[in-house]
Design a protein around this nucleic acid. Structure first.
Length: 134
DNA sequence: GCCAACGTTGGC
DNA sequence: GCCAACGTTGGC
């Protein structure tokens, strides 16, 4: 069971909307590193949902309900999509500021490479993030 | 609004 | 294959 983090601008697709729609296809990823991560996702894996731009905080949890398959929105190239199901909003969103203040989270990809849109999260990091969100 | 970091493109 | 130039992203 792995943990991931996906990044999205709330103007494009806020977590609240995702919660209403329950499931969404995670399409449009056009970055090789992110693609590698999408391909490594397994059904049942857990996903943190991060709002970049307005917010800059982890706002919710989701899980993978369909593993990587060819991205239907890709007109050319070998890209993949997954299906995600919204699980719940975090009681206390974990802000980027709080993450940066936490020593044990300095290796989080969000800190090291904030531009990567699909990121792995270690088990230790995920447990700490969940604790901070309680 | 600025700029640093990153990824991609294209000339050599 | 290298690297300069450019475009994009996202934090500040």
């Amino acid at each position: 069971m792995s943990w991931w983090l996906v990044k999205q601008e709330p103007e494009s697709y806020a977590f609240a909307q995702f919660l209403q729609e329950k499931k969404t296809l995670w399409t449009g990823v056009r970055n090789y590193q992110a693609r590698t991560n999408l391909r490594a996702m397994k059904v049942g894996d857990n996903v943190f949902y991060y709002h970049s731009g307005e917010g800059k905080e982890i706002v919710g949890l989701a899980k993978v309900t369909r593993a990587a398959y060819p991205d239907p929105t890709a007109e050319e190239g070998d890209w993949v999509a997954v299906e995600l199901q919204a699980v719940k909003a975090l009681a206390h969103p974990v802000t980027l500021v709080a993450i940066k203040k936490t020593k044990a989270l300095q290796d989080l990809v969000l800190v090291r490479n904030s531009r990567l849109s699909v990121q792995p999260v270690t088990l230790e990091e995920s447990q700490l993030l969940l604790k901070m969100a309680t």
